[in-house]
Write a protein that binds this DNA or RNA. Sequence first.
DNA 1: TTATTAATTGTATAAATGACACTTTAAAAA
DNA 2: TTTTTAAAGTGTCATTTATACAATTAATAA
Lengths: 233, 233
Amino acid sequence: MERYIRQQRYLIAVDSIIFGFDGEELKLLLIHRGFEPEKGNWSLMGGFVEPEESLEMAAARILKQLTGLSGVYMEQLHAFGNPNRDPVERTVSVVYYALIDIHQYEKQLSDSYHPEWFTLNKIPKLIFDHPQMVTIAKSKLRDKASVQPILFELLPRKFTLPVLQNLYEDVYGRKFDKRNFSRKVLSSGLLVKLKHKEKRRSKKGAFYYTLDKQKYKSQFNSFLNFTPFPSDL
Amino acid sequence: MERYIRQQRYLIAVDSIIFGFDGEELKLLLIHRGFEPEKGNWSLMGGFVEPEESLEMAAARILKQLTGLSGVYMEQLHAFGNPNRDPVERTVSVVYYALIDIHQYEKQLSDSYHPEWFTLNKIPKLIFDHPQMVTIAKSKLRDKASVQPILFELLPRKFTLPVLQNLYEDVYGRKFDKRNFSRKVLSSGLLVKLKHKEKRRSKKGAFYYTLDKQKYKSQFNSFLNFTPFPSDL
DNA sequence: TTATTAATTGTATAAATGACACTTTAAAAA
DNA sequence: TTTTTAAAGTGTCATTTATACAATTAATAA
């Protein structure tokens, strides 16, 4: 018994939705597609799954190719398999999303894909069903962030409360009261206040905080609800 | 340009995790695998994706084959693609889970797969990576049910509060206080109390309720938190 | 020295949650 | 017919959590 008979085989691709945050806005890393069809048009970073690698490995390889980063937060989002989603040949795409520290990325040398970061409300026209992938990723990020502290994956080791609040506000598309916000975040016990300040963003400067990595790991599955149902909407 | 060159192609399968609820316990519908390898062993219901169908269509087709049901709640869970998950040939499986009214199923004639319902803590040895699929499905169901009223998909049109509570207790693996439970469920406004009782389960009988389908649709995304973090654990 | 800008901090009210036990109903048993 | 039994149904209080809201502080710029 060598193969299953009378069955069609298809290409398997992996596409990666790479989120970054610059302190103000959530962003997506997009590339110019390098081959036909749609060569040169904006696209998610992707590639075909090699014979000996798992889906996760393929996603990690593709992320590394583009950003030079490995070991970052990455999770499967959804598999897309409409018969004609790729006009050349039937291809099932398994989409992953990654949350990276955008500053780590900036240290890397960009390569031949001419990647660019785009603010979420200024995403250019994307190929194939990539717009749908991005839409689903955004809502997944919101849902997940309301239950787990994953947004910290987007921040550098040291960050300030105002920056953290910017991040949550951008992800949820709404403003939070800063008194309530800091109370809630600090009550998790995940943050450690540092003794020095970040001074670039304001005259007064804002104290740095950093994650208590022990607690971060142990409490990863019991973060607070971030207003799944805001009263003012 | 006809095909992408120098790329390997793989089989794509869809496997379905079919949940049912008999009023007491959550159950899974399993079959005897019909072909080699592992022929006759317990397995999730699955099949290969046909050339002209989407993943969703394949999942719906497979569900219909086994249960005779269509139009039921179904959602993609995860894609599994480890290189050797199927010993015969590389196969990526996209797994869906379905929530069905087990009574609807019982009216169907069973067929050649010899399907059986299994209580979740008495799942037999399953083939390949199907155990992992089931594990992920269980936790997905819990997570989703804490945010959306999906568990009603498992109930018949008319149901009682004690039965509903049994369902939630089984999904979360804990007991709820019935006073607090009914208060919370009824406060959603999703339930309509009927004038007659179900009398089989107790002497006194319990009033039937039914879903307000209007509200069910409109409030689907704003159901109450079902104790993602119970205080007594 | 003063003005400016953003960071930091507290309280009062409302809503949701969790703990807890008796009454009611209707069938079954005596 | 009466009594027993088993599960359904219901209310209150205490605690926790969420929300609304504004004055003070720190540091730079004028």
